[in-house]
Structure formats: structure tokens, C-alpha cells
Design a protein around this nucleic acid. Structure first.
Lengths: 218, 218, 218, 218
DNA sequence: TATGAATGAGAATTCATTCAT
DNA sequence: GATGAATGAATTCTCATTCAT
């Protein structure tokens, strides 16, 4: 009675991971096309060529899916940071790189903006903890490289990392808020919207922060 | 179709404002008791002693209600900042005040954390624009006082204000994320949760930023 | 405390009638602009320059308003029929006139289509009976003239009138159903929609019926 | 989120069709008991022993449900017409049959009366088009049989069919309007209500029309 | 493993009408 | 007479998740 082509059963761990990657990829496409709210598990299943139930074999919940997606984006950002930013870079250069990474890594910004208030708020403990662990590890990795390239004093490493991440998070919010076709915006607030676009708001702040710790007042 | 007890009619503008204030107050109470998701227009109406339809005479939608609530909180924060922070304050003192204001103004932090991804995302244009205008005005007012007390150079005023607001926004997110009864948290991530509590993450960052602009490298 | 310009109080019966006519006229405009569902009592009041409560001084309910509107349209149709159709007219000519009257009298068709299932179904007894009386009188007047110009035998007068009115009613429905921008209609049913436009469906039927009784089989 | 008793799953197409039939049947019962406005999707689900969501698996919307119901009634009427009316029948006999079919097929008349102004007006395009297609096919089938039994000349077939359907539609309206307990009606309009009962108004008109085309004036 | 039928919670909002001023 | 603040009923439909096959 089964309709449609049953996809071959994924048995090995590899196949399982592969299948999950497929799902994440389909999800990314859906987000691009229909936005976050346009992603429904039914549609995603269809798009991935799976049955709804099968989807849940690879992803415990919709929120977990998003979490997975964000972790990937975060992983990319961290990797790029480690790859691009080297010892000797100026505050301005580091700020530039961070801005660039955040902006050009697909989904990073919009997902970061939704991470806490939308995604984490609706996820079960189990997946949340799992995600937290990974995210924490990635943050640590990033912070470590940051401390390295900025040659910041040990006691300033954490405050610096925190300040930058916090700004990044805030900027992601601002950016989300500023994403709007200026057409249709009332004259008097149009500029305010664009003022908070990511690059415009994050880069100077990051630079400010970095300079503060990289050139300690003598 | 009408039954029930008509409450005293709010005829003058003053009475109307008072009634709206009443509604906002009832909403605040509900949030305290049942959390954001616990706020229902029906329940709110009942609590405010109004008919549902009456509620909508004073608030165009649930999201607008939240926006109104946030604006009030923001107004308070700005007022306190202007009242508490005076010329001559050190970076540390200013950071301390900001932290305190944000933390002790009821609803400010949790609403700010939800402002963009949850509230603004679901509000109609009309109320959104109205809110933006007020929020922008308040921000400007706050930024102006900030520039004044920090004696920052004119060209650094905006970057400073932006950096601080962005950090505040990010910290609000972190804080929301860290709000969790440590009991029940796995050992290995418990500390990470508490690490991002508002005061612990925001104050040092704010101070860092403020110091950076208040003691220009000679 | 009253806001806005209080319209002068309408005292005499004449003034009252005049005010009611004003309201009906405003309603007609609203229907033209926003369709039937676009008419709300609030908006109508505003448009008529009246307060909501005042509206109800001249019209007992929304449905009564529509009934009043239809009666006017019907009155026009009957008057035009009596004015335009004279003894000696052929079945084809009469059918033509009827079609023309129904079609060119504003609101007649769409209101007739909604008369029973939408309007009468939701009106209180009192206004319904009042309307019925007027409508019945108008029908009788129309039927009488019809009998006169068709020189139909006394026993066929009622069946003829009924048949024509029924067809008119049915055609009004068909017409309502066919009112749709052909753009956006699927190819295969586009023609079906247009086929039931009023003139195309009513006139031949009316003619058929009229001819049947006007040229009795010898 | 799932609780409650899963009913037997309808897996095969047959089972699905059966389940839909069950739903329609439950809807018919509800209409009988509580009238059209008494039909609630929630109540219907309960009555059918289904969860609300399940209902929507079989019916896209409430209006579509009504459309489905009408199509069934129409299908019955057409079938009965084809079964009962044979070549050689007189105009009077055909009119009699039509009247009878329309009157004794459950829900046919009241649904036909509401079809355009109430049901079609509130249905989404997709289901509307689907319904139109079926209705059009049924009409054509009926018209063909009509042409056959009346031996009407090819060019008169369509006008005849249209005239009869239009009258039927009009009569359905009249009938709806006349459905009212005479008790409680004012003396002076009581008769008028009953005068427009279906059989009394439709049959003579149908006969008139049929005779007109079946016995062409020599 | 895969499937997809079944589940059901859940709340916002409109607008005709009334009646206190 | 005129006003407009207050009323409140009333119901749809979506979609994440589960679990019988």
C-alpha cells in the first residue's frame, strides 16, 4: 500500500549521516525560498524525498533541525576565522574578517538572530544540551584563536571574546530588524532601518572593542 | 448582543490613557505570572475587567501590546539613565548604571530579547512604524545624554551608542538563554549557562567599550 | 465632550427621510467601492458623517439597510418597466427591456442575488415583514402591467409573472457566479463562467417564456 | 502531542473514499438537526468520531464540504432524471419529475439556494474550480438527456436547458424564502409566503417552458 | 526501517448592536 | 437627538509529532 519510491534503507552510520546532511541541505533550500516560517516538516519531507515519519528518524524535532543548521553555520564561521585571521592582524582587519564571515556564511546571521528567542525557547532539553555542548566547544575554539591573534593578556581573553560575541548577537538582531524592502517604508524611518544593517553596525563596534584591548593604554 | 456590566466609560483623552495604562499593567502582571506565552487576549481582557472587544479599542493587536510594553520599559530605562548618570562618571560607573537599569527595570531585558525575532516579526506595518518612531526617539535621547556624559568626540558618539546598544541587545539574548534553573542542567554545561547571565556578561563589555572611547589613546 | 460636528438634529419627518436617503446613498457608494462585504456599519457611519449610534436611529439593522436598498432598486425597475414597455410590444422586445432594466439599474442584480440567502436570512421579523409588504406590492404592480402589455389570459397572468421572476432570480444568481475576472480562471472553465452572464442567460429564457404565452398554440 | 484513540487508518483509496463519505453523511445529519449555520467543524469532527485535523485531511475547508455535499445532491438529481424521464414524456410529466427530484433529493434545494451567494462566495479558488468542473459535467449530462427526451431541435437545446436551470435556481430561492412556519406570520403576507413554495412555483414554470419548445408553434 | 494517516491544542479578532452620557 | 465607548459571541485551520501498518 505504500506509495512512492521507498528510499533504500539507510543502515550504516555513514549512510545515516549522509541522509541527515541531505535533509539539512533541503532545509537550507527551503529557508532560502520561503523563509523560516515557510519551513514545515511536511514540505521538508517532500522536498527531501522522504516520508514525514522518516524525517523524524534523522532529526528529533524541527527546532533541533534548526539547531543543527546553526551549528554547521557556526562551524563554518569558526573555521574561516581560524583560516583567515592570523597573528599580526590589526583590530580593523580582524573586525573586517569577522564581519565578512558572519555576513557571507549562509544562514549564519538570521539563525543567530533567532537562536535564543525562537529556537532555543522551543527545543527539548536533550537536543538543547547536545547543541549547547557543540556550540560551547566552537566558541572556545574561536575564542582561543582570537586570544592568540590578538595577543591579548590572559585575563582579558574572556571579556574580549564575550564582548565580541555579544555584539555579534546584537548585530544579528539589528540586521534582522533592518531587513526590509525600503520601498514601502515611511520616509522618516527609512534611514533608521538601513542604519542598522549588519556591516554598518557591527564592524565599527568590533573594531572599537578590539582596539581597546589590542592597544592597551600605556 | 450586549450584556454584562458596562464599566465606566472612558470619554476624555485622559481617561482613555488611564485605561490603556491599566491594560498594560494587567499585561505585565500576566507576564510575571504566566510568562510571555501565557498571555492571552481573552485572559488579559478578563483580568483587566474588560470585554475582549474593548481591549482591542486600546490595543490594535497582541504584538502591539508587547511593543507598547517595551516602549514603556525603554522609556523608563532612558529616564533613569538621564537621571542617574551625570557628567564626570567613569566608564565603570556608567557601565554599572546601565547594567543596573537594564536589570531592574521590569520586563526590559526579556522584552528586548524578544523584540526583533519574536515581536517585530509578527506585527503589522502600521503599529511597527509607530513603535519604531518612538523607539528611535528614545534611543536618540539616550545617545545624546551618553555623548554628553562621556564627553566623547562628536564623530565617536554614534559608534559608541551603537556599540553599547548592540551589546545590550546581545546581552539580553545571552541572559534569556541563561535563565534556567541550574538544577536539572548537566554538570558539564551548568557553568556555561550561568556565565552568560546579564550582569556578568554585559557590564565588563560595556566598560570595555566605554573606556575605549573615554580614555583616548594619547 | 462630544467630538466632531454634531449634525443638526433631524426633527421633521421630511428631514428624517432625507437623512435616511443620505445614508442609503452612502451605502451605495460603499458597495461600489468595497463590495458588499466591505460595508461595515462603522465605516458607513463615518462616510455618512454620522456617529454609529445615530445611524441606528434611521436604520434598524444592517440587513434592513440592504432591504431598503433593494426595495429602491426594485422600485426603479418596476417604474422603468411601466414607463418603457407598452402594449403592442413583442415578446422579444419585452425580454430586451427587462434585461436592460435589470442590468442597468444599479445594485439590482447583485442585491437580488443575495436577497434570500444572505439578507432575508439574517433580518429580524419586523423589518422583514415590512419589506415583504413593499416588495409584494411592487411585484403586483409589475405583474399587472405585464399582464396588460402581454394581453395574456387572466389565468395565465400569475404563472407568467412567476416564471419570469423566478428566471430573473435565477439569472441574478448565475450572474453573480459569473462575475469574475476571466484572467486567472483555468482555461477549461473560463467559457462556462462567461456563459452565465446575465444578459446571455436571461434574455433568451425570458423571451422563450413570453413567446409561449403571447402566441398561444392555436 | 498525540493522545486519544487513533481510529482505524484509511490506507487504501477505497477506505479513504469511504471515510469521506462518512464525513459527508455526518454533515448531512448535522444540517438536518441544526441547520446550515449549526454546522461547526469541531462539532462535525466529534460527530464523525474524528479529530479535527483528520477532518481536514478529507475536506479542505468548510465551504468545500458544502460544495461536496451539493455535488452529491446534484449527482443524485441528474441520475434520477436520467433514470426516470424517458423519451415520449410530455412537458407536464417532465416538469413533474423535475419538481419531484428537486424536492425529494435531500439537501438539494436548500443547498442550491445557497450555492452562489453563500457557498461559492466564500470558497478558495482551488476547490471552487474543482467543484465547477464537476458541476458543469453534471449539467451537461443532464442537458443532454433533456435534449434527448424532449427531441428539441439542436439550436434550442441550450436555451431550454439554461431556462430550466435558471428557473430551478430561482425557485430554490423562492422556496427558501417561503420556508417559514406560517404561524407567526402576519395575516396579510401569509399567503404570499406559501405561494412561493417550490412545487407551486417551479412546476408550472417548467411546464410552460417545456411546452414552449416541445410544441413549436406551427 | 519507512510510511503517511491521525492527532488536537490553541487563540486572535471582527463588527453589529446597545446604551450611558 | 446625537454620540461613540463597550460588548462578546463565535469558529476556523495549521502543523509538529506520533505510531499503526
Amino acid at each position: 500500500m505504500t506509495v512512492g519510491q521507498n528510499i533504500k534503507r539507510a543502515i550504516s552510520e555513514d549512510q545515516k549521516a549522509e541522509r541527515q546532511a541531505m535533509i539539512l541541505s533541503a532545509a537550507r533550500d527551503m529557508i532560502d525560498e520561503a523563509g523560516f516560517d515557510g519551513v514545515t516538516m511536511s514540505a521538508l519531507a517532500k522536498r527531501a524525498g522522504l516520508a514525514k515519519g522518516t524525517l523524524y528518524l534523522y532529526v528529533r524535532s524541527k527546532e533541533e533541525l534548526f539547531l543543527l543548521l546553526f551549528i554547521e553555520a557556526m562551524r563554518t564561521v569558526v573555521a574561516r576565522f581560524k583560516g583567515d585571521v592570523a597573528l599580526g592582524y590589526s583590530a580593523a582587519q580582524i573586525a573586517r574578517c569577522m564581519t565578512d564571515h558572519a555576513q557571507t556564511t549562509p544562514l549564519f546571521l538570521p539563525m543567530y538572530a533567532r537562536l535564543v528567542a525562537v529556537i532555543e525557547s522551543n527545543v527539548a532539553d536533550e537536543p538543547l544540551f547536545a547543541a549547547k555542548r557543540q556550540l560551547l566547544a566552537l566558541s572556545a575554539e574561536w575564542a582561543e584563536h582570537l586570544a592568540h591573534v590578538t595577543r591579548v593578556s590572559p585575563d582579558m581573553a574572556e571579556p574580549l571574546a564575550t564582548a565580541l560575541m555579544m555584539s555579534l548577537q546584537g548585530a544579528a538582531q539589528f540586521d534582522l530588524s533592518s531587513q526590509r524592502d525600503p520601498t514601502g517604508l515611511p520616509e522618516d524611518i527609512r534611514e533608521a532601518f538601513s542604519r542598522y544593517a549588519f556591516a554598518r553596525s557591527f564592524e565599527p563596534s568590533a573594531r572599537l572593542i578590539l582596539e581597546a584591548v589590542m592597544t592597551p593604554p600605556k
